[in-house]
Design a protein around this nucleic acid. Sequence first.
DNA 1: TTGAAAGCGCTAACAG
DNA 2: CTGTTAGCGCTTTCAA
Lengths: 354, 354
Amino acid sequence: MARRRQAVTIKHVAADAGVSLQTVSRVINNEPNVRPEMKERVQEAIDRLGYVPSIAAQRMSGSRSYLILALNDRDRTIADWRARQGTDWVDQMLLGGMLKCAEHGYRMIFELVDTHSDHVEREILAAIAALQPDGIILTPPHSDNPQLVRFLAQQKIPFVRIGSQENGEGIPISMDDEGSARTATRHLISLGHSKIGFISGDPDYALSGWRVDGWQGEMAAAGLPTDGLLEPGDFTYASGERAARRLLESANPPSAIIASNDQMALATLEVARSLGLEVPRDLSVISFDNTPLVHFTQPPLTAIDQPIAATASMAVELIIAAKKGDPRPEALTVISADLVERGSVASCTAGTRG
Amino acid sequence: MARRRQAVTIKHVAADAGVSLQTVSRVINNEPNVRPEMKERVQEAIDRLGYVPSIAAQRMSGSRSYLILALNDRDRTIADWRARQGTDWVDQMLLGGMLKCAEHGYRMIFELVDTHSDHVEREILAAIAALQPDGIILTPPHSDNPQLVRFLAQQKIPFVRIGSQENGEGIPISMDDEGSARTATRHLISLGHSKIGFISGDPDYALSGWRVDGWQGEMAAAGLPTDGLLEPGDFTYASGERAARRLLESANPPSAIIASNDQMALATLEVARSLGLEVPRDLSVISFDNTPLVHFTQPPLTAIDQPIAATASMAVELIIAAKKGDPRPEALTVISADLVERGSVASCTAGTRG
DNA sequence: TTGAAAGCGCTAACAG
DNA sequence: CTGTTAGCGCTTTCAA
């Protein structure tokens, strides 16, 4: 292949406008100390020639690459893609992150990384060296991988940790998992439910714990017991099935179950059906995440929406702000989540069962 | 922000190995004319220092950017993302394209473009100027946008047109839409169906026509009429609903319907239910694409799988090959698609219906 | 407020 | 086979 050169470079613009390269550079980067008339003249030349700066060249000399790296867990992401069950985490990240990047002239690059591997650092170092990104977005479970977080801090690249509350390096953003769990629990309590079961998520994800905390906190606040109502899961359908079965086959089964993600809620629906329970008449179910499948279940699932797009968008904003030298937010950034009501919740008709 | 320099550059490696920059460069790029022992010595230094070339610098001097641009339709993609119905086209593109890129040290960058806009060229030129990608992947409906295709050809960048059969510039890859439609039709005919309705897709997409062709061809081959059995759709649920209703409420309704995508098949299922028809007993349905929702319908949909991941993977390979100077494939590259049997098809029990 | 010079990290072209 | 030289397009000094 022929050596491809930039069609129109800063030189062409400078020549066309009759100014120096620097002046053009200043206009591109919106720097001060350019007379309005100069600026206008240059801008005209830029438009006329259709000039767009090469990010490679910008990166070579300057401090910005206009690239933001989004790191996701390799195994889980690939497994989700292959399963074709509609998990849309990546899509929502793109929706929020990519579009926000575009607004600012940045691009988002996706990268998959093994969080458990002992050479995480090498993998990431390679990506950093190759791309020289202006910032990095960490998603769960990377966000809480201490090795990784420590390593990134050393690299002095701004990074956001999505789904993280821990103090320490990097900018944490949380999707208010605890608050959402409280919302879901309160919703059920207000409908008369008092035995509310909870299926937790993968303990690798810090947010799993926060969701449990929210449920427990709200139950406690209402003076309701939680003994025997918490079952561990790991976000898989199979784990949800096991957990739901234990909950529903116990001597004192709950009238409502909150599942920490949609797959486990789907499993709960299935177990309920197999036990002859009708949802929501005999059992109310609330799920977390609000992924596509909630539309297709029988009945459609009432769910806590996980505001991934809004969070990714905010992550990009925080990185760009950090890059500009703005101070990082004093407080934890929390993106609130809504409860989306569908058909899987009803009032508790106490005494109807067992 | 401080000016960030590469931590370890080719210079460090050269010094460490006691050779010239050029030799290191040759080793990195796997070029000939390096003695094995030299190569080994350099490789050791690279490993020891954890050196990774900066793609920005590689792009600046060389002819490669190690970036491949994947262009998708802006409106439809964003609409799909927002709808959160589980359309996983983008995910499958990433699964196939991104992973294949990674194998070769390339990265894939996603970009959304308005195909109908009159400044498509400007948008794309901007992306090309900024990124200097080594290749571009066009997806429908961009693949058949003549303005765009002509423009890209002028840029002398290798580009693949997914879902395209037309001759002309660029490397076309087809997912065998006509063949798949034939497969689906043949499957139904073999089960005794003779009145097989077809709901076509958005005419903006060339593949819509090929799917119709396949159905018509196979029907003709079997000596079956198609009058009144073709209804136009545009890939939306609403259009599928209209089309299914017309088909099923006609005086001489089909015993089977092939819908050109899953959304329209879903609509068909709904219309059938509203008409008191049971699927598959009273009506067989085959859908196209095999997106996530096929798992969740009642019954699960038998569908033609659209091999997006395999196609994206192949697209990347073809671009990298073209970049290396390999001749482009003489024949059209066709990725074959499979029929995935689920629960929406049964033998035709002729005469069962009115 | 503007311009000239230097160099980012790497490869192409050529010389040895 | 290996090394030297000259940039790629841009921003950062620094000087005017």
